[in-house]
Design a protein around this nucleic acid. Structure first.
Lengths: 244, 244
DNA sequence: CAGTCTTATGTGGTCTGACCACAGGTTACA
DNA sequence: TGTAACCTGTGGTCAGACCACATAAGACTG
């Protein structure tokens, strides 16, 4: 009965099982596609469909050729797949920008709160964030470069929090927003003036974190995010709890 | 120069563009694979690799046969892809359970806070949540059935909040946790006693929401989640902000 | 004529075989 | 000994074939 699990699903399950049961770990090579196909009793095309999924999900990296560098390698790269997923969900109108922003508010508020509280008890490595902030002071930045650094700053905070899940989700949210931007649905109103304010707010956020002022940091970052989106022309079709 | 974008990426980009520019909307049919291949100048196998990605990401649904019901259909089903993604990230050890739980705490805390505040101003449809709670009172439930209802309850709250992004993320987090469970990494310590407490806490959470007591609801749900995971034997390799 | 049965058509699902380009190792030659 | 040519294994891609399935169109039967 061929109506069972589809062939590519068999491959995906096999890889997942190998991962869970320790036969595969980050850094390991998957067998060659042809070997995988023979071992699992499926065609090479089915194997390739499964590998493509794993690749988009950010679990493997592939390289052609021969030797140690070639083949599919397990890479646990949180965030890779999340970005593609959220961007496409936005494109398919499954996600609304207001929901994305709200999620960002919640997660980033948690991040800076945790970071600030951690700062009260021990040193926290915020060098990367500070470095990005310094780079943002350059007067020769284009709007696109500035926004890229802005993204990096916020992601560096997530990274510093050490929570891979939140970091990956944040990366996905940024990617979703950039999807809107690419579609021309989001543009900043008055750029030069805004950039100065954003810089100021960034410094304030980082200062509050390092001072261990958790509430101040949270409020600052949430105001920062809200303010940013308020200035963009994102259609704010906010979703609210369903009423009856 | 054949080292350009890979063929399947071309297909993925084309679909994403069609989505963004309104040529494709939820409910629409994609052209048949063979047509898509001919139109984009790639082989059918490449088209299939792209479609497989879209399917796993939850953007399309496919059906064999002919007629109106067959073919690939755009479906904006938030949550579908997130589940696969997070489950696999867990398998590949990119995500740690402590991070998953932390994210759940943050997001679910936000959900119930919003719901409670919404209840203060207008009626909110929490019928589904209440219904699930009622079903959980059945004395004939197995542990697996109970846990499935538990998942449904928490997801129904997310749904009621109306935020698709958070709902999808929550679904992914549950899926990740279930991945741990399948791997035998998480088992409840003392089942029968726990179930009674969980039921009680569920009722408390819903009551707090409906009473509009935002803080109480938030604290209750966070205690509920923390308590649950404290009783499981999940290896709690908590991640903390990086120190230097 | 109405209803059912058979057949045709279109679709996804899968496999096989064939190339190509590329990276690395191996061998032959200067 | 050092370099160049070749060989091998790998992913990337395509074309073609076949199957199973769902629907639609036509043929048959009462």
């Amino acid at each position: 009965m061929p109506s069972g699990p589809r062939a590519w699903q068999v491959v995906l399950d096999a890889v997942e099982r190998d991962l869970l049961e320790g036969r595969l770990s980050p850094g390991d090579h998957l067998p060659p596609e042809r070997t995988l196909a023979a071992d699992l009793g499926v065609g090479r095309s089915s194997v390739r469909e499964a590998l493509r999924v794993l690749e988009v999900l950010g679990l493997i990296r592939t390289a052609v050729g021969s030797g140690p560098s070639a083949g599919a390698i397990i890479v646990a790269r949180p965030g890779g797949g999340m970005s593609a997923l959220m961007r496409l969900q936005v494109a398919a109108q499954g996600f609304e920008v207001a929901d994305v922003v709200k999620t960002r508010l919640v997660l980033e508020g948690s991040i800076v709160t945790d970071l600030a509280e951690a700062c009260r008890t021990h040193a926290v490595d915020l060098a990367e964030s500070a470095q990005i902030l310094a780079a943002m002071e350059s007067p020769t930045l284009t709007e696109a470069e500035f926004l890229a650094l802005d993204t990096q700053f916020h992601l560096s905070l997530a990274q510093a929090s050490g929570n891979q899940v939140i970091t990956a989700t944040m990366a996905g949210l940024r990617s979703a927003i950039e999807g809107y931007a690419r579609a021309g649905l989001a543009t900043l109103a008055s750029w030069p003036a805004t950039s100065a304010r954003l810089r100021l707010e960034h410094r304030g956020i980082l200062a509050a974190i390092m001072a261990g002022e958790a509430d101040a940091a949270r409020l600052a970052v949430q105001a920062h995010i809200s303010g940013y989106y308020a200035e963009t022309q994102l259609a704010s079709s906010s979703s609210t709890p369903t009423t009856r």
